[in-house]
């Protein structure tokens, strides 16, 4: 089963770019992604540029994500694992669970180029 992990952080929380904490966290991120590839669960992943978020609803284009959203979507990862407990176990390794959230969805009809 493919699961989409969407990663959120709260504005102003988590380490700031250019600090030693940020660099330390990047090492953890890279380590988890490498582990995912080594275990054959990695399907796809990408960081997102939160400041580019644009929403189209009917014909109205607005700046940013949904107005009510307090947590900012900054990355996604797709993994292929047997069940929800396995998806949860991988999600627990992600540093942003400390200051943000990981949302997990089972996917239906995932197509990759």
């Amino acid at each position: 089963m493919n699961y989409l992990l969407t990663l959120y952080y709260r504005d102003g929380e988590g380490p700031q770019q250019g600090t030693p904490e940020f660099d330390a966290e990047m090492k953890i991120w890279n380590g988890v992604l490498e582990d995912m590839k080594r275990d054959g669960v990695y399907v796809a992943a990408s960081g997102l540029k939160p400041e580019t978020a644009t929403t189209l609803r009917r014909e109205t284009v607005t700046d940013g994500p949904y107005a009510e959203t307090k947590e900012i979507l900054f990355s996604f990862i797709i993994i292929d694992v047997p069940d929800l407990d396995a998806a949860l176990a991988w999600s627990r390794k992600l540093p942003s669970t400390e200051y943000g959230a990981v949302q997990i969805h089972a996917t239906e009809g995932l197509e990759l180029a």
């Binding site: 047997p82 069940d83 929800l84 407990d85 089972a106």
Partner: peptide, 14 residues
């Protein structure tokens, strides 16, 4: 069913 919540007794760590 769709999220595949596992149908088993969890492993020792969980």
């Amino acid at each position: 069913s769709q999220g595949r919540i596992p149908f088993r007794v969890p492993s020792d760590d969980l």
